[in-house]
């Protein structure tokens, strides 16, 4: 007699499915790109790299496509700690490039990667809207009333470093309005106009071009994040993986990194 009950039940089941799909689609922050080449050399590489390396590594791929056409590179960019988790769970990675030593160390301790080599350093910078409307000159200004500050969660290296920078500057722990889970989301809050200031890597400020403006943090307060890279032990293409690592550590990769604002490893 209440035929809507039947109909509503059907609707509900459908909704639960949609709901599940919706939840899943939002949590992935990784991006992947694939190269198409016709070479049959066993050089199909899965490179897991920190999100902050996105631009530099993408540039490098274009270079390698010319110089080493046998390497077919597929990138997986995400937060370093998320990548560590994936590799621990057996994701098919051939190379891992991490932001920060601690994430790499986790895999070294677990015996999952070969000996890592540091290939670049990065440092923090304050990013503000073009023209610096809030007149931010340093970390101390970030806690001023009326300045909306967004940082990374301390679980992200950039977030941890930012806290350390405030401590080095003898400032109290900052009151951020939100703690984002990666630098790209943090920067997005600034470019969307929701945040007045964020603290991200200098390479991210450079990558964002004219949409943001950088305010340097004095070296005495700043930290240097190092980027180690290593071949994953479970890789089935170790020779190709090593070739890629070499390019990044000492070859054409260095130019790409420098062009994107990264500092030399040493």
């Amino acid at each position: 007699m209440f035929d809507w009950r039947g109909r509503a039940a059907v609707v509900a089941v459908g909704l639960v499915l949609v709901m599940a799909a919706g939840c899943g689609s939002s949590s992935s922050k990784s991006t992947a790109t694939t190269t198409k080449t016709t070479s049959n050399v066993n050089g199909a590489l899965n490179v897991f790299a920190a999100a902050s390396l996105t631009e530099a590594f993408t540039d490098e791929k274009a270079t390698l496509a010319r110089e080493k056409p046998d390497l077919h590179i597929t990138y997986n960019f995400a937060g370093s700690q998320a990548l560590v988790q994936s590799i621990q769970q057996g994701a098919p990675a051939d190379v891992f490039a991490s932001a920060g030593q601690s994430n790499m160390q986790t895999l070294v301790d677990a015996g999952l990667v070969e000996k890592p080599v540091t290939f670049a350093r990065n440092t923090l910078e304050i990013a503000v809207a073009p023209g610096n409307p809030k007149h931010i000159t340093g970390l101390a200004d970030l806690e001023r009333a009326g300045v909306i500050l967004v940082l990374e969660d301390p679980s992200v290296p950039a977030g941890k470093y930012a806290l350390q920078a405030f401590a080095s500057a003898k400032l109290p722990a900052p009151h951020a309005k939100s703690l984002e889970l990666d630098v790209k989301s943090t920067l997005a809050k600034l470019t969307l106009g929701e945040a007045d200031a964020v603290v991200v890597y200098v390479s991210d400020v450079k990558a964002a071009g004219t949409k943001v403006q950088g305010v340097p943090i004095p070296a005495a307060q700043n930290l240097f994040a190092s980027y180690p890279i290593a071949v994953v032990k479970a890789s089935t293409h170790k020779a190709a993986a090593q070739a890629f690592v070499d390019e990044i550590a000492t070859g054409t990769g260095q130019e790409a990194l420098r062009a994107r604002g990264f500092l030399p490893a040493g």
């Binding site: 919706g22 939840c23 689609s25 939002s26 967004v150 939100s178 703690l179 984002e180 889970l181 989301s185």
Partner: peptide
């Protein structure tokens, strides 16, 4: 998804 994007994480 909408929460972490729009409202942030604090």
């Amino acid at each position: 998804g909408a929460t972490i994007t729009f409202a942030g994480n604090l």
